[in-house]
Design a binder for these strands. Structure first.
Length: 841
RNA sequence: GCGGGUGUGGCGGAAUUGGUAGACGCGCCAGACUUAGGAUCUGGUGACGCGAGUCAUAGGGGUUCGAGUCCCUUCACCCGCACCA
């Protein structure tokens, strides 16, 4: 028998499968449906190992579920709008559309070589008007419902390039191209009112039991509900008030200042008449817009000279600061500071010499002598120096303080959320045009539905900074659909997260004129199993959930929760190699010599760094195309699932992939067992069958639970059993079971072997093998023997042996007797069929 | 900074969810067969110890008859932080 020729076999079966339309699906009420979806890729032009891992996971699930009798939908599409296309346009003078469509064509070809059981007839490209026209209609429907609105909002502004920068284009506070210090700028932008659904998005999390707990927790924290109180501080010698939100009304007597955000209307007003304040506001405007950076800034502020009146004691006045750690987006954009019980307030107070007055004392500690140094006291304790709150716990005091505020008419209990509305405006060309016309008379007017889609113009130039739509000579000049006067199109396009918020619904009816049919979405949705990276745990998944809530309220036939099951796979990582001259080397540029690496080109030593996420910049990438060329795609699929649990990072190693490749050959060689004379013709049929059925049962539950690495380990054990326990009478049966079990992982090898075993139809159409529980039963088992909790021995006994009998048998063992010696047995703990622990007195 | 996670032999990992730590694979060692192959097969392989045994699941502490698993704490690394997708 010749070696397994993966190239010929894989190509042949891929042709056949495509020819037979094996993976095309349609609603079928007679079968249960199963919708399995990988997060669709951005068409960068080349697939990477992360893609291979992601799509292998969904393909294993798809093939397994198909074998279990489900009507499986496993589609694929392209998240095709976005920044990289515009960067390519600027760097290489390629039109974003051309660049994107060419990338899609290339990637599609590569993806097809993975042997995925995808229904390609449903492919979508979000940059195509056939896709985004529906999104424009959705935008208008949301607007109509009050779920889209405009407000002024901040962007990163590059003063040299005169353009808006994405956060990733801001490096250390400077524009990535110009190097200019990035400023904040306020623009009128469109927002989706995700905050209208805060409660539903929060309570919906409880229903998503097939999601990882960590993702639900992350979303819950992101929405971030805080219970507290709204307090109105009177301002001395002024008519207006300062509204403050706090989660700690109990600490009001420890307040030593108030602080407002630099973006607070009061701060802006004060800045107009006070140069010092204006300078400070300018300084704040220069800082970055992202939270991670802001949180690390040293606390800074400026005293406005205003005095806030303490709500419980009008004789106490608190200075009002403008502070860089107070955010306008959260609460009311104003706080009162109690330095003793809040770390940020404490740091601020130390800097500006504000009093630090503890009002909560740790339990069982004298109030005298309790002082705060560098760490604020934020735990529960007993209220002190707080008038009517004295002696209460923090919880009690929160309640009483809030009640008192309400009585005084100076505040009330309220909940505040961290979640902010979703800003969807992008000042960019390569995105879905927002279908709005701005008329000097009528304001913002929707583009009439009959005029949709608003198509992106092709003739754009990237030679000047800013948004090409904005400086296009004609595109934006139109007549107002309402009054007919000259007006201008909205030149902002939509955030690409909008496309990914409904593509899974489009897959249900991708080729029709409507966005989707109720009969399709009601059959297919929700997605039964969604698979993608943990990096999407919050934004993408939350936006998609919101979008479905909103679309449903606009009358679209979609469920509120789009993703029933979620699985987040880990990254693919690889060692890094550094040349002694300091530059990175590709894995293909180094070779192993003994236990170290050298550069193939010049033989110089190479420093091996720890494994990290594959990235172009560090060159620690493995091209799936080359791997498929060398080893075949079944080997690659097998390997990416074999070594690590799928939710964890997976380390790509050359020895690992070779091991997988050897396994493919090894499985293939099992066919030769049929032709050689068995050395031991009579063996234990039952022993082999037991292993076989144990394997079937184990692999089944492992796939159900996404433990693909464990399933694969079981298949290895099973293959070993062919040599140890094989009886020729079981051979055909044993091989068929093996082929059915590897089919989801290595479809090409499985299909070829299936035909070699004498079958004429595709292995894809075969039902999943069933384990016979009776065959798995063992009648004798090994029980662990512990003495005082220490492992001493094992004993083989019949299953379900009575305790007394077991104890007697165990005490006969010489090791046990020796360990016990002359000591008395106090008691013994027996875990049935597992363990006995003898406790000595 | 905040939120979420991960940590087990030389390496990737397994452990019936509180009950024999190290399944399976890689690597390494030995043997067999061929000896032109990086092929294949068999056996061994956590550390220390001649041994009975002792020590081992990032470090420290705790709960328990029993802890990789539960609790407290320290450290390291990873993901997200709202305009990358």
């Amino acid at each position: 028998m010749s070696r397994y020729n993966f190239k010929e076999v894989e190509y042949r079966w891929q042709q056949q499968w495509a020819h037979q339309n094996l993976y095309q699906c349609a609603p079928d009420s007679s079968r249960p449906k199963y919708y399995v979806l990988a997060m669709f890729p951005y068409p960068s032009g080349k697939i990477h190992m992360g893609h291979v891992r992601n799509y292998t996971i969904t393909d294993v699930i798809a093939r397994y579920k198909r074998a279990c009798g489900y009507n499986v939908l496993h589609p694929m599409g392209w998240d095709a709008f976005g920044l990289p296309a515009e960067n390519a346009a600027m760097q290489h003078h390629v039109h974003p559309a051309r660049w994107t469509y060419e990338n899609i064509a290339q990637m599609q070809e590569q993806m097809k070589s993975l042997g995925l059981s995808i229904d390609w007839s449903r492919e979508v490209m979000t940059c195509h008007p056939d896709y985004y026209r529906h999104e424009q209609k959705m935008f208008l429907d949301l607007w109509d419902k009050g779920l889209a609105y405009r407000k002024q909002s901040v962007v990163n502004w590059d003063p040299v390039d005169q353009t808006v920068l994405a956060n990733e284009q801001v490096i250390d506070g400077r524009g990535w191209r110009s190097g200019a210090v990035v400023e904040k700028r306020y623009l009128w932008q469109w927002f989706f009112k995700i905050t209208s659904y805060t409660k539903e998005l929060l309570s919906g999390l409880e229903t998503l039991t097939a999601w990882p707990d960590k993702v639900r927790l992350m979303q819950q924290n992101w929405i971030g509900m805080s219970s507290g109180a709204l307090i109105r501080f009177a301002l001395r010698n002024r008519l207006d008030h300062l509204e403050v939100f706090t989660t700690r009304p109990d600490t009001l007597f420890g307040a030593s200042f108030c602080a407002i955000s630099a973006d607070h209307p009061l701060a802006v007003t004060l800045g107009k008449s006070n140069r010092q304040i204006a300078l400070f506001l300018d300084e704040c405007a220069k800082s970055a817009v992202n939270e991670a950076t802001l949180e690390k800034l040293p606390k800074k502020g400026i005293d406005t000279g205003l005095k806030a009146v303490h709500p419980f004691n009008p004789t106490v006045e608190l200075p009002v600061f403008i502070a860089n750690f107070v955010y306008m987006d959260y609460g009311t954009g104003a706080i009162f500071g109690c330095p003793a019980h809040d770390q940020r307030d404490l740091e601020f107070a130390r800097q500006y010499n504000l009093p630090v007055k503890p009002v909560v004392i740790p339990k069982n500690q004298p109030a005298q002598g309790f002082t705060i140094r560098d760490i604020a006291f934020t735990d529960d304790g007993v209220l002190q120096h707080s008038d009517f709150l004295n002696g209460l716990s923090v919880e009690e005091a929160k309640l009483k303080a809030t009640q008192h505020l309400t009585k005084l008419g100076r505040g009330h209990a309220t909940n505040v959320f961290r979640l902010r509305d979703w800003g969807v405006s992008r000042q960019r060309y390569w995105g879905c045009p927002i279908p709005v016309i701005h008329c000097p008379e009528c304001g913002a007017v929707p583009v009439p539905v009959d005029d949709l889609p608003v198509v992106l113009p092709d003739d754009v130039s990237f030679n000047q900074p800013g948004n090409p739509l904005d400086h296009h000579p004609t595109w934006k000049y139109v007549d107002c659909p309402r009054c007919g006067r000259s007006a201008q199109r909205e030149t902002d396009t939509l955030d690409t997260f909008v496309e990914s918020s409904w593509y899974f619904a489009r897959f249900c009816s991708s080729s029709i004129a409507q966005p989707f049919l109720a009969s399709d979405t009601q059959y297919w949705l929700p997605v039964d199993q969604y698979v993608g990276g943990i990096e999407h745990a919050i934004l993408h998944l939350l936006y998609a959930r919101f979008f479905m809530h909103a679309l449903q309220d606009c009358g679209y036939p979609v469920p509120k929760e789009p993703f029933h099951g979620l699985f987040t796979q880990g990254m693919v990582i690889h060692e890094t190699y550094k040349h002694q001259k300091g530059h990175w080397l590709f894995p293909t540029e180094v070779e192993k010599q003994g236990d170290h690496y050298i550069c193939s080109a010049d033989g110089s030593p190479v420093t091996v760094g720890r494994s990290e996420k594959m990235s172009k910049s560090k060159k620690n990438v493995i091209d799936p195309g080359q791997i498929i060329e060398m080893y075949g795609v079944d080997t690659a699929r097998w390997f990416v699932l074999s070594d690590s649990p799928p939710e964890r990072d997976f380390e790509w190693t050359s020895s690992g992939v070779e091991g997988a490749w050897r396994l493919v050959q090894k499985i293939w060689r099992l066919l030769t067992l049929r032709t050689i004379a068995p050395q031991n013709p009579i063996k234990d049929n039952n022993a082999f069958r037991r292993i076989m059925h144990k394997t079937i049962a184990g692999v089944t539950t492992d796939i159900e639970n996404f433990r693909f690495n464990r399933a694969i380990a079981r298949i290895y054990e099973y293959i070993n059993a062919f040599h140890e326990h094989m009886d020729r009478n079981c051979l055909q049966e044993g091989l068929e079971a093996l082929v059915l079990l590897i089919q989801p992982f290595m479809p090409h090898l499985a299909e070829e072997m299936w035909h070699q075993l004498g079958h004429k139809t595709s292995v894809t159409l075969q039902p999943w093998p069933k384990a016979d529980p009776a065959l798995i039963e063992e009648d004798s088992i090994i029980i662990a023997i512990q003495v005082n909790g220490k492992m001493r021995d094992t004993i083989t006994v019949r299953k379900d042996i009575p305790n007394a009998e077991l104890e007697a048998a165990v005490c006969q063992r010489s090791i046990v007797q020796k360990t016990i010696g002359s000591q008395a047995i106090k008691k013994s703990i027996i875990v049935p069929n597992r363990l006995i622990n003898i406790i000595l007195g």
